[in-house]
């Protein structure tokens, strides 16, 4: 079974796992789990309207995702609300936009959900290049601005008082989440994507108190979740996404049961 096809899938899976695990740290610590869903549906709305206007749907999906993610930060600050409120407003707005498009399309509904489904088995060369570029971008941003992001994740006001231009960095987080979600969405699909941005950091949270290790572990658990899931899928001929999601969830449950952090500090 170790052929080129398997290795390509495994390689892609590992890169995607790291990528989602890393971005997941921000999503987890900022408490904005819904952001992935909102951006994914922006992509769907973008795809539908691209179809209507005869623009390449991949491009229009990407564009609308980026626009949505670009606005999350500034709107949150301007409206002085929790980012989850902004994210929910954007979600309903793009859903409205999507349904408007569906109404216009009449009868071609079956293609709509395709924007939320991807299949890692169908990954092509261009996809792999995009995944790698996104991964590199993410790592560069995290490494170079590690201290700024540590301060911002700790407390935005304190970050600002330390002379960090925190707004720019804060807004950039959402933008990068937007890039990661929209690049990966039609490669791995919504289900696997949501699982991979939420579960790995939730696992890391139970293991470490250090932010650096938190990033590393979240990336490692993302990668091992996809690797484990893909191997199981090939061995037993299972659907890949389901296998990855269930395997990652299984790891989460194991860590939860043995939670080293809570043990160390004597909580039950």
């Amino acid at each position: 079974m170790i052929d080129e096809f398997f290795l390509k899938t495994l390689f892609t899976g590992i890169c995607v796992g790291i990528e989602c695990g890393l971005i997941g740290v921000f999503i987890f610590l900022l408490n904005i789990p819904f952001v992935g869903v909102a951006i994914a549906h922006s992509a769907m709305a973008g795809g539908i309207w691209g179809f209507i206007f005869n623009i390449p749907t991949k491009f229009s999906a990407f564009l609308l995702s980026l626009i949505s993610s670009f606005f999350i930060g500034p709107v949150t600050d301007k409206a002085k609300v929790n980012p989850n409120i902004t994210i929910s407003i954007i979600f309903s707005a793009v859903m409205g936009f999507a349904f408007l498009g569906i109404g216009i399309l009449k009868g071609k509904n079956e293609m709509v959900l395709n924007f939320l489904w991807g299949n890692i088995l169908l990954v092509n060369f261009l996809d792999i290049v995009l995944i790698l570029l996104t991964l590199i971008l993410e790592i560069i941003v995290i490494v170079i601005f590690y201290r700024q992001y540590m301060a911002i994740l700790f407390n935005r006001e304190i970050a600002a008082s330390l002379g960090i231009n925190e707004k720019v960095f804060y807004y950039l987080i959402f933008f990068i989440i937007g890039i990661v979600v929209s690049i990966n969405l039609d490669i791995i699909g919504g289900l696997m994507l949501f699982s991979l941005i939420i579960t790995p950091p939730a696992i890391a949270y139970h293991i470490t108190f250090e932010l650096k290790k938190f990033f590393i572990l979240s990336g490692v658990f993302g990668a091992s979740g996809t690797a484990g899931g893909i191997i199981l899928a090939f061995l037993f001929n299972l659907p890949v996404s389901a296998s990855v999601v269930l395997f990652t969830t299984f790891v989460f449950i194991m860590v939860l049961v043995f939670s080293p952090k809570r043990r160390k500090y004597g909580e039950s």
């Binding site: 700790f154 006001e157 330390l162 949270y205 108190f209």
Partner: peptide, 20 residues
């Protein structure tokens, strides 16, 4: 600031705070 509450399991050490 008056308030900088964080979750008690938040991944940041005392050392990290000083190093900010």
């Amino acid at each position: 600031p008056q308030n900088y509450e964080i979750d008690k399991f938040f991944p940041i050490l005392t050392k990290d705070i000083i190093e900010l």
